[in-house]
């Protein structure tokens, strides 16, 4: 097992495209879950409508710069549709409806009925040429040793982490304001917030729509990097990557999603490398029954266990304050 190579690959993943994309996506989810207490189990649906909104716009002859607001608008409308029937009810109803909507949307864009627009199971490709044409970075490799990225990746990463920075500033403005304080009050106790004259339903709807729009941006960013949207990429698992990241970094903290995403993708890639090495290269008796295709599922099972562990023992994140944690154990 080449531990150095595994560590370097993990390090690349920690600042790579998925890390940037999920930092952005998790910033949206953090507004919903961390600041407002909403259980949006269909965050992937917002990523999907963002990506498809943009891809379809380009496919129909529009510019990608028109596609971006279209994708955001689609996410805002989705937030309205999902939030309206559920946000007056207990927290679990939103979870039920959003997780269902995520799956239904995936099936819908996959269907032959929507195929004229979405191209069904084949998806839409090469809609981001306009973005890559703008790349000012000369052809070449940038970095040291194995830790190198080509000019295309650097350009994409530049976009990704800039979006993360912008979204963080946006959230900083919002959450440090009286608006953000009202959101946190709702997270703590809806009835108390109502008794103080806060329009709880309106705030929750806003949180769902704004967080969803940020999720849509993340979906667009991932799609731009891959130059591809395909329905089968938008599985429910993606929502829970974001959940794990938010909880890792500390829900309701400004930099939590960024820190969480970097740690998450480092661990994800590291585990992948180590497990592949153990199962494929090494001759360990009880692992003989497994082969390389089992690495993915085992990692997802570990990921589920990690989410459980975090939620039970570290609900305030890896670096959450003890004091806050004690209060939370109500």
């Amino acid at each position: 097992m080449d531990i150095v190579k595994i560590l370097i690959d993990a390090g690349r993943a920690a600042i790579g495209v998925p890390a940037a994309a999920y930092a952005l996506s998790s910033i949206g989810l953090n507004l919903q879950f961390g600041y407002t207490g909403l259980l949006n189990f269909g965050h992937v649906a917002f990523m999907l409508v963002g990506a498809y909104g943009m891809a379809i716009t380009v496919d129909l002859g529009g510019s990608i710069w028109l596609g971006v607001p279209v994708g955001i608008l689609a996410a805002v409308i989705l937030g309205l549709i999902l939030g309206f029937p559920t946000l007056r009810l207990r927290a679990d109803y939103l979870a039920i409806v959003t997780i269902a909507a995520g799956e239904i949307l995936r099936l819908a864009v996959r269907s032959s009925w929507a195929a004229p627009l979405t191209k069904g199971i084949f998806g839409i490709q090469r809609f981001a040429d306009e973005f890559f044409d703008l790349n000012p970075i000369p052809v070449g490799l940038y970095g040291i040793g194995r830790f190198r990225f080509d000019e295309r990746t650097v350009w994409v990463l530049l976009l990704g982490w800039s979006l993360v920075a912008l979204a963080t500033v946006f959230l900083w403005k919002l959450t440090r304001s009286p608006w953000g304080r009202a959101m946190r009050a709702i997270r703590e106790d809806e009835d108390a917030a109502l008794s103080l004259g806060k329009n709880v339903f309106g705030y929750k709807l806003q949180s769902l729509m704004i967080g969803g729009a940020i999720g849509a941006l993340a979906g667009m960013f991932l799609a731009i990097d891959q130059q591809n949207v395909n329905p089968d990429a938008y599985i429910p698992l993606l929502t829970f990557y974001a959940f794990t990241i938010v909880i890792l970094g500390g829900p309701g903290t400004l930099f939590g999603p960024i820190v969480g995403s970097v740690i998450f993708w480092f661990l994800f890639e590291f585990l992948d490398g180590v497990m592949t090495a153990l199962i494929v290269e090494m001759d360990i008796g009880f692992l003989d029954a497994l082969d390389a295709t089992d690495v993915g599922p085992i990692r997802f099972a570990l990921f589920g266990a990690g989410l459980m562990w975090l939620m039970i023992y570290r609900p305030q994140g890896l670096f959450g304050s003890k004091e806050e944690m004690l209060i939370d154990a109500r």
């Binding site: 679990d92 909880i247 599922p297 099972a301 990921f303 589920g304 266990a305 989410l307 459980m308």
Partner: peptide
């Protein structure tokens, strides 16, 4: 809310 998140984590463990 934490309980629901734990249950979804458990569902990933069992399923995978």
């Amino acid at each position: 809310v934490p309980m629901i998140v734990v249950s979804i984590g458990l569902s990933f463990v069992i399923r995978y």
